[in-house]
Simulated assay, not measured.
Amino acid sequence: MPASRTRPPDQRRRGSGAARPPVVEAVVRWAGAGLDRWKRLSRTWRVSIAAALAAVVAAGVWLALPEPSDEPRARQYLAFKACLLTDSHGIAGKDAAPVWEGMRRASLKTHAKIQYLAVPGPATVANARPYLASLVQRQCGVIIAAGKLATDTVTANARGFAEAHFVVLGTAGAAENVRAVQVSGTPVADAVERVVSEAVG
């Protein structure tokens, strides 16, 4: 008698009508009941509930976002200061503008501080000397002269401020603490940027 080909009970394929697990059946019933209740609601109630859910979701997303810092991170400057002496036109003057641009570039590169001081009133060395002395008292690491008035003032008074370091564009005076920067054939801003960067070290 041929052997039976009937599979053991645990290996028989379940039919498509097999009963679902109790947990799945409960979830299906709950979802169906909720959908039925939703369909019975008026359109106004549906809109109100949807708007409330959207507000809850939006609030959750907003709370999950990191809080922005109160202030942008402050730039860390060095203690070194490069200072500029100008005539009454300040850094807007034709002689001072390219010098200030070079100092600004050097500051971005080295994080050195930069300052300028304009000389108001008569364009004389005697009138400008107290302003030069003010920059020396501020302990500027290097003091740059922009224009004829500032250059003449540095040349005439550099020996009296032996502890200071000065830079003039063109021909320097006889004092050892005055450095002359030749700018013929070189943009003034580039030359000044180089000088300030070298002074910062």
Rank of each mutant, 00 (worst) to 15 (best):
A51C: 15
A51F: 06
A52T: 14
A52C: 15
L53H: 14
L53Q: 13
L53A: 08
A55D: 12
V56F: 10
V57M: 09
V57H: 13
V57T: 14
V57S: 08
A58V: 13
A59E: 10
A59V: 01
G60H: 07
G60F: 05
G60R: 02
V61F: 05
W62C: 05
W62P: 05
W62E: 06
L63A: 15
L63E: 13
L63Y: 05
L63W: 11
A64Y: 06
A64H: 09
L65D: 02
L65A: 12
L65K: 12
L65E: 12
L65S: 14
P66H: 05
P66M: 14
E67T: 14
P68A: 10
P68E: 12
P68I: 13
P68Q: 11
P68V: 02
S69Q: 15
S69T: 14
S69E: 13
D70P: 04
E71K: 08
E71Q: 13
P72Q: 12
P72F: 08
P72E: 11
R73M: 08
R73H: 06
R75G: 04
R75C: 01
R75F: 11
R75L: 09
Q76M: 12
Q76W: 09
Q76K: 10
Y77S: 11
L78S: 15
L78K: 14
L78G: 15
L78Y: 05
A79P: 15
A79G: 15
A79I: 06
F80H: 13
F80R: 09
F80I: 06
K81V: 11
K81Y: 03
A82G: 05
A82Q: 02
A82M: 12
C83D: 06
L84S: 10
L85E: 07
L85C: 10
L85K: 04
L85P: 00
L85D: 03
T86R: 00
T86D: 04
D87W: 07
D87I: 04
S88H: 07
H89G: 06
G90N: 00
I91L: 07
A92W: 10
A92G: 03
G93D: 08
G93A: 11
G93M: 01
K94P: 00
K94N: 03
D95P: 01
D95W: 02
A96R: 00
A96G: 03
A97W: 00
A97Y: 04
A97G: 00
A97M: 07
P98G: 04
V99G: 01
V99W: 02
V99K: 00
V99P: 03
V99E: 02
W100N: 01
W100A: 08
W100C: 06
E101Y: 07
E101G: 01
E101I: 09
E101T: 08
